[in-house]
Computed example of a mutant assay.
Amino acid sequence: MLLPKGYEVEVYTGTPAGEIVGLSHKIVADLDRFVREPDSRNVEYTTAPLCSYERLLCDLVRPRQQLREYLHGLGDYTLIPGSSLSTGGSDRFYRSDPNHPYHNYIEQTYGTKVVTASVHINIGIDDPELLMRAGRLVRMEAPLFLALSASSPFLDGQATGYHSTRWQVFPQTPDWVPLFASHKHFIHWTEEQLALGTMQNVRHLWCSVRPNGDRRPYNLNRLELRICDLLVDPLSLLGITALLEARLLQLMEDPSLDPLVVPVGESQERVQEKLVALTRENEAAVAKDSLNAQLRHWQDGRVLSAKAWIEELLQQVRPFAKAKGFHCFLSPVNKILQDGNEAQQWLRLYESGMSLQQVVQQKIQEMDQQERDLEDALCQMMAA
């Protein structure tokens, strides 16, 4: 049996010319499944937890098509790819709900650093201790998923020098988050942060990976990978999800993959410090250079590129995906490694002489057509 999987997808709305326009107050009032973010220029939808990759693909595409049709009814509006305010607007916060106290805190504390678009991948794991172990492993390898998904090389009409401007500017909160040694550790740490005020509520844990559930930190049932930029290609998102699921299946068979194994002569506190520092360094490197970033492997300290590490990981997990019958969904990962991620593709167009606005406009058209083709080919077939 495959693990249940679901997504939280944030996406910008705007014009076909690439201008990002705040419309979430209208969208959430008229459409089910969509919820507002603190800034009105992006909106979020979620998919139900599903084991089937084919059904998951339909659940990804259909809400976006519904949203597109609704936006066309409002005027000349569409969905904007990318994970940063590429064409401008970071100088001002557009509140989606002026009366929401938490939104008020976010605006005053972080400003437009949080006005990004991303996708959060949730994988269902009921056993809280297995969930903590999975969180430790995925935290160490989260930079690889950012490397595959990077799609924010621009901000305010300029190339920033980063492949994921979103992750470079996004305020990770609290400043230091440990690898949780147990469910009890997670509960105690969360209660402590709430008491100290470093977290405003249980949702205010903004790091690459976190345990999630209906009553955090006590009742948990899923692992949430939060580091990914927005992948506008649903097949690429399924590929990255398949890589994550296969790695978790490997961990379930081989608990020795747990990073928090304390060597003789070292304290757990010291191991924690080294591992957290290492992955933060790797995250920063990937935010800048994505697949080309030089990283340090958490297991043996080797220095290798993100691309080379992902290629190694694919070889390790493919047997687990094949045993469960979903190895074909890993194929898009190979395509990303071959062709480059979204950020790299955008930058190639930009460096070839296209203006930033032309790049964004072309990607808007490609995103629209691809999802129409997918809906026609797959979703209608499954509904038959």
Rank of each mutant, 00 (worst) to 15 (best):
D233L: 11
D233F: 03
P234I: 01
P234M: 01
P234F: 01
L235E: 13
L235S: 05
L235Q: 11
L237A: 06
L237N: 01
L237D: 01
L238A: 03
L238H: 01
L238T: 02
L238W: 04
G239C: 08
G239T: 03
I240K: 09
I240Q: 09
T241H: 05
T241P: 07
T241G: 03
T241N: 05
T241W: 01
L243H: 05
L243R: 01
L243V: 05
L243T: 02
L243A: 06
L244P: 04
L244E: 09
L244I: 14
L244K: 06
L244H: 04
L244A: 08
E245V: 12
E245F: 01
E245R: 05
E245N: 05
E245A: 02
A246T: 12
A246D: 02
A246P: 06
A246Y: 06
A246K: 07
R247M: 07
R247Y: 01
R247C: 02
L248Y: 03
L248E: 07
L248N: 03
L248R: 05
L248T: 12
L249N: 04
L249A: 14
Q250G: 00
L251D: 11
M252C: 08
M252D: 09
M252L: 14
E253N: 14
E253H: 06
E253I: 02
E253D: 13
D254G: 00
D254H: 15
D254M: 13
D254T: 13
P255W: 14
P255F: 11
P255G: 14
P255R: 11
P255H: 13
P255C: 12
S256F: 03
S256H: 15
L257Y: 12
L257T: 04
L257A: 06
P259I: 08
P259E: 09
L260H: 08
L260E: 05
L260K: 07
L260D: 02
L260Q: 07
V261K: 14
V262D: 00
V262E: 10
V262K: 03
V262L: 12
V262F: 13
V262A: 07
P263R: 10
P263I: 10
V264P: 11
V264G: 00
V264S: 15
G265R: 04
G265N: 06
E266A: 14
E266P: 00
E266D: 10
S267H: 10
Q268K: 10
Q268E: 15
Q268S: 14
E269S: 12
E269N: 08
E269K: 12
E269Q: 15
E269H: 08
R270H: 09
R270I: 00
R270V: 13
V271Y: 02
V271H: 02
V271F: 03
Q272G: 00
Q272D: 03
Q272K: 07
Q272M: 11
Q272C: 00
K274F: 01
K274R: 15
K274M: 08
K274A: 05
L275E: 09
V276Y: 12
V276P: 08
V276W: 06
A277G: 11
A277V: 00
A277F: 00
A277H: 07
A277Y: 10
L278Y: 10
L278P: 06
T279I: 02
T279H: 13
T279G: 07
T279E: 11
R280Y: 01
R280V: 09
R280W: 06
R280H: 12
